[in-house]
Design a protein around this nucleic acid. Structure first.
Lengths: 175, 175
DNA sequence: GCAACTGTTTCGCAGCCGTGAACTCACCTG
DNA sequence: CAGGTGAGTTCACGGCTGCGAAACAGTTGC
């Protein structure tokens, strides 16, 4: 949840929106309000009562939670569970996966993933690609797929039926 | 759209909620606010500025239209969602699509689209046509169609049943 | 020392975008 | 109704860029 001043902290709003995090704009006196359809954004004029702010924050929280259902789980030991199965992930891939899970079903930008995977600063330019490739292979048995959205980032989702049957065909041909 | 006083008009709120109509609660001074997750409900404390009320009403209108008319959604990462599926759109096509969605079901003029797609000025005259063609093919799997209105512009809408059966025939022939 | 993890290099393909040109189609006009 | 005109469709191509994938090498832990 992000609380931010409007229009002072315009960039923080953009960042939160890009990451899909719920946000409440505290609108300064005399300023006008942006018209935003996103259900994870709301606003309130300051000064405002504690209670009013609390209500808006709570509603945003619930909406955010409502959109997160049937999401894979990743525990602290790097064990990823989904649909009854599990695999273990090495450190770097676990951090990448945590990022993808946070925005399950939506695009995560490359730079965001890069920050998540290497908090101390990214190594080579292609390291991310390689790790995504390895991650893909590791999570395939759980029927999870990472889709590429060119020049934007990656997106984690459950394998669709047609994809599953594709795998079947590939197996047949390989066999 | 229902504007009602809270908590005076409690029944009107219930009725509107039951019918799925968007509603704005005008909360009387000193009264507390209900926590409601429904995206078609919002509230504001009175007295409030005309503008603030207008913004909340406008947002509710848009959400109502989006949920009831089943308008496709385009997120910031160029992912277009409709009817359970999604496709990703490259930058130019995403901007065109945003324009078409804004006027979903209505005609968008060619010059308007051109401005939307190329804010810095359009390239060749043919560029728009080609991108509309590519857009058409890309969104076909989502059962969305772009219709041409000769010498007027283009129009985005959901595929009708008869159009869908046409596709079926094409599939049969390909198989 | 073996196995798992990690990073780099390199090559190739596929997607994006604009252009030119051939083609279809609706509509108008003589 | 034949022919012309202009609008829109479709295809093929070239330049560019981003990502995929394999192969290799260095590191760490058991």
């Amino acid at each position: 949840m992000v609380l931010l001043r409007w229009p002072l902290e315009r960039e923080r709003r953009e960042a939160a929106a890009a990451e899909g995090r719920p946000r409440l704009l505290l609108v300064e006196e005399g300023e006008s309000v942006p018209v935003e359809e996103d259900v994870l954004e709301d606003w309130i004029r300051v000064p405002a009562g504690e209670e009013d702010v609390a209500v808006r924050v709570e509603v945003l929280r619930r909406r955010a939670r409502a959109t997160q259902q049937n999401v894979p789980e990743l525990d602290r030991d790097g064990v990823l569970r989904f649909g009854g199965g599990w695999v273990s992930l090495p450190p770097v891939e676990a951090r990448l996966m945590a990022s993808l899970i946070e925005r399950f079903g939506a695009v995560v930008r490359r730079d965001h993933l890069s920050d998540a995977g290497w908090p101390e600063g990214a190594p080579g330019r292609n390291a991310l690609d390689v790790h995504v490739l390895r991650l893909r292979r590791r999570i395939a048995p759980l029927a999870l797929v990472i889709k590429t959205v060119r020049s934007r980032g990656y997106l984690l989702e459950a394998e669709t039926d047609s994809e599953a049957s594709d795998n079947g065909q590939v197996h047949v041909r390989k066999a």
